[in-house]
Simulated assay, not measured.
Amino acid sequence: MIAAAGSAALLFGAFVFQVLGYAPCAMCIWQRYPHAIAIVMGVLLVFALPVLPILIIGALSAFSTSALGVFHTGVERGWWEGPTSCTGSGLDVSQMSVAELLPSASSSASSLVMCDEVAWQFLTLSMASWNAILSAVLACLWLVAIAKTQRGRLPEIADVS
């Protein structure tokens, strides 16, 4: 439940930043979906009997948003390339029509939030980096919950010394 609440807090924080004027890029949005799944898993823990599958899905959700945060951090820092739709110029010219290539055809390019630009940082870490770190901690909490539910269910290994 604590891990699910942590995902809720991170998701709430993302929405607060959005309200403050920090529009999310595409990769920021991608990182929100696993948090939503983890929150749902936390709610299901209150009602569901098969706890282990819920805990596993919660852990996988937290790990996946952490991995997306690491990937996004690498894109921001130029360690690797990101999606062409939201990095560099943000335009994939090979997929555009002639009308879209004209300067007056689209205003969406000017409002596009770039995934390779850091909009905000704290202690030299971007929002994506903080999401990666904090989500990894949440994933560990999910794993602790899994370990606690499995304690006593695994056979003891006999000491032959």
Rank of each mutant, 00 (worst) to 15 (best):
W30F: 14
F63I: 06
T84Q: 11
S7T: 14
V19Q: 10
L60N: 04
L20A: 10
T84G: 08
L20V: 08
G90Y: 04
G58V: 00
E117L: 05
F122E: 10
W79E: 05
L45N: 04
A59S: 00
A147Y: 00
S161M: 06
L68N: 13
C115L: 00
M1I: 10
A105W: 12
I157L: 09
V19F: 13
L10P: 04
L45I: 01
L134S: 11
G69H: 07
A99G: 04
I57E: 05
Q31N: 12
L52T: 06
W80Y: 05
S64L: 15
I56P: 13
V51I: 07
G42T: 10
M96G: 01
F47R: 08
V75I: 07
I57L: 12
A26T: 02
E100G: 07
R32V: 10
G78A: 06
A59H: 00
Q95M: 06
A26R: 06
R32S: 12
L143N: 09
I37F: 01
V70R: 15
L141N: 08
G82C: 08
H35E: 08
A5F: 15
L55I: 01
A147D: 14
S94T: 02
W120L: 14
L112M: 12
L52S: 09
A67I: 05
I57V: 10
G90L: 12
A36C: 07
G58M: 05
A105I: 07
N131Q: 06
C25P: 11
V19R: 15
F122H: 03
V46R: 04
